[in-house]
Every structure is written in C-alpha cells, then in structure tokens.
C-alpha cells in the first residue's frame, strides 16, 4: 500500500513538474511599456518578465538590480547583440533601437533570469 502510494506520488510530481515548467504558460507578470516602467531584477526573476513594447520606435528600459550576486550582473538581448552591465540597487538604462514586431528574449549571462519583449 505504502509502495503504491509513494510511486503514485512520485509520478504525480513528475507530471506536475512537466506541466508547470514546460507546458503551462510563463507569462505571469506581463506589463505594457511606459517610460517610467522599471524591471526589477531580484531573486532569480525579472519582474515583469514579459513587456509589451510598441513596434517601430526606439525605447529605453530601466532595470533595477537588487540581486548583488554576479548572476544578475548583465542583461543580454541576444537577438539584438545588446547587453548592459547593471548597477546594484540602482536603475540602469538600456536603450533599444526601433524593433520590428516579434518576440525578443532577454536573459542574464547564464540564461537563468529570463524575460521576453513582445513587440507589437
């Protein structure tokens, strides 16, 4: 009985992991772009991690880094070849050129912090 219960629990956990991390949507904290929007870099996540941005005009994002660990030191937009070193406990400006519509990921160097710009 115990054996069966442990096995079922294990399999349910696996199913939950697969569902939560891979199948369920990731857009937990989407936000519309505004000049005063700040992206908080803290505890392993960008908040908001999804930013809706207007297409066709240059914008400036503000990243406020509250995580002093080196993991959070850089924000990298790999598709745009843009990266910026983030100062701790301060907002750092990241200027982006006018973008075409589409999705542009941004991450830390190690790709543990993850976010997406949704240009529309």
């Amino acid at each position: 009985m115990m054996t069966l219960a442990v096995n079922i629990l294990g399999l349910l956990l696996i199913a939950a992991i697969v569902w939560w991390f891979w199948l369920a949507g990731r857009q937990i904290s989407a936000a519309h772009f505004s000049e005063s929007l700040e992206v908080m870099v803290k505890d392993g996540v960008y908040e908001p991690d999804t930013i809706e941005v207007p297409a066709g005009r240059p914008i400036t994002l503000h990243f406020r880094r509250e995580d002093p660990s080196p993991c959070a030191e850089y924000v990298v937009f790999p598709d745009l070849d843009i990266s910026r070193q983030l100062a701790v406990h301060e907002a750092t400006e990241v200027s982006l050129p006018a973008l075409d519509t589409g999705k542009y990921p941004f991450t830390c160097q190690m790709k543990m912090y993850r976010g997406t710009l949704v240009v529309e």
């Binding site: 991390f21 369920a24 937990i28 904290s29 803290k42 505890d43 392993g44 991690d49 912090y113």
Partner: peptide, 17 residues
C-alpha cells in the same frame, strides 16, 4: 536567498540553481 529565489522563480514557471 536560495529559498526566496527558488520560490519566486517557481511562481514564474521557471526554475534555476
């Protein structure tokens, strides 16, 4: 910081170190 980080990442459907 490991626990808060892990929990925050979990809420974002994300997992890290």
């Amino acid at each position: 910081h490991f626990y808060t980080g892990g929990w925050k990442a979990f809420r974002h459907h994300s997992a890290n170190m």
